[in-house]
């Protein structure tokens, strides 16, 4: 099944799915904690606007039991990841160092594995009550064929959420990460792109590589702010994503990402989770055709930035449900 084509579902269905452990007799302490969390965080399943805590508020809530056990769980998740990840990377590296005649075909296989792994990770995070997100229940649908996703970037897991939700997805990876010896085989093997290195003309390389990926049938994800969004605001958008879409003549799909209360942002670290369970939502807006802007990336940027900014910063914004034709 292609998750990019899974029809949208209501948020209510999301809350009761994917937690078969909770009904098992003799559930573990972790499971009981998860259920306590779910009851305490009932609002998470029925999201209402929740003010993002300031770092000061987060400190005040340190003694809140909900935050304490979430911190313990987050620490466990990080510890498990730290222990297990090297094995996963080693397997990938061994595989990706083998020669291949078709790097795109292997890239799609790598992406499929990564997509399932991120989907599983979000299932575990949801089951633990650490982060409410289900990649099977997106609001809106992605189109068929190549496109460029542009989105705001309020939290780190939003990128893994997109990876879990979209097939054949490439991303632009920060140059310092891309060049790390332990990560490079994986990001290269998955056909990701290396970001700029501070040279004003790096955009030429990024744009060229992005257009090539789209011509090969991949989808491309870019955060035009270039970094995680500041609290309650968005950074100015950069033009590369729109230029790539214009040159490749593929649509841009804007995605509004919300994480309330915010967690793993620049200001709220991983090991300081909020007292309430954070809810991550992705609202997939209608594709925007660059032809409507005469393939002018500047005009396209302005229109999409205005729309995304308005929706992402509006605490009460509601996104229209998907249309009957599934778009």
């Amino acid at each position: 099944m292609n998750p990019a084509n899974v029809p949208a579902q209501s948020g209510g269905a999301l809350a009761s799915r994917g937690r078969p452990w909770a009904t098992l007799p003799g559930a573990t302490a972790l499971g009981r904690l998860a259920r306590m969390s779910n009851e305490a965080g009932h609002r998470a399943a029925h999201p209402e606007p929740v003010a993002d805590p300031s770092p000061g508020e987060a400190r005040h809530r340190w003694r809140n039991p909900g935050q304490l056990w979430r911190t313990a769980l987050a620490t466990c998740v990080v510890a498990v990841y730290t222990v297990m990840a090297p094995f996963g990377y080693a397997l990938f590296m061994a595989w990706l160092m083998l020669p291949t005649r078709d790097p795109n075909r292997r890239g799609r296989r790598v992406q499929a594995i990564v997509r399932r792994a991120f989907g599983l990770m979000h299932d575990v995070l949801r089951w633990c009550g650490l982060l409410e997100f289900d990649h099977r229940s997106l609001r809106g649908r992605f189109p068929d064929g190549p496109f460029v996703i542009v989105a705001n970037h309020p939290t780190l897991p939003d990128s893994s959420a997109l990876f879990a939700s979209v097939t054949d997805l490439c991303a632009v990876v920060r140059a310092d990460l891309y060049r790390k010896a332990w990560l490079r085989p994986l990001v290269e093997g998955a056909r990701h792109l290396e970001g700029g290195r501070g040279n004003p003309l790096d955009a030429a390389r990024v744009v060229e590589a992005g257009v090539a990926r789209l011509n090969d049938g991949f989808r491309l994800m870019m955060f035009p702010e270039g970094s995680r969004s500041p609290p309650g605001d968005l950074r100015p958008f950069r033009r590369s994503a729109f230029e790539i879409a214009c040159r490749a003549r593929v649509p841009v799909v804007p995605v509004v990402i919300r994480c309330r209360p915010v967690w793993i942002s620049k200001e709220v670290p991983l090991l300081r989770p909020p007292a309430q369970r954070p809810v991550l939502t992705l609202d997939v807006l209608d594709p925007v055709d660059p032809a409507d802007f005469g393939y002018d990336s500047r005009g396209m940027l302005q229109a999409i930035e205005r729309r995304l900014r308005g929706l992402a910063l509006d605490q009460d914004a509601s996104i229209a449900p998907p249309r009957a034709d599934g778009r």
Binding site: G196, N199, P200, L201, D202, A203, A204, R238, R239, S240
Partner: peptide, 28 residues
Amino acid sequence: DSIDALELAMAIHKKFGVRTSADDENNR
């Protein structure tokens, strides 16, 4: 922005015949 830099480099090449290498560390 960086796309402007790209367009400017192409315009300079066209008008003055001076080519800019994308890998040149002196570009900044």
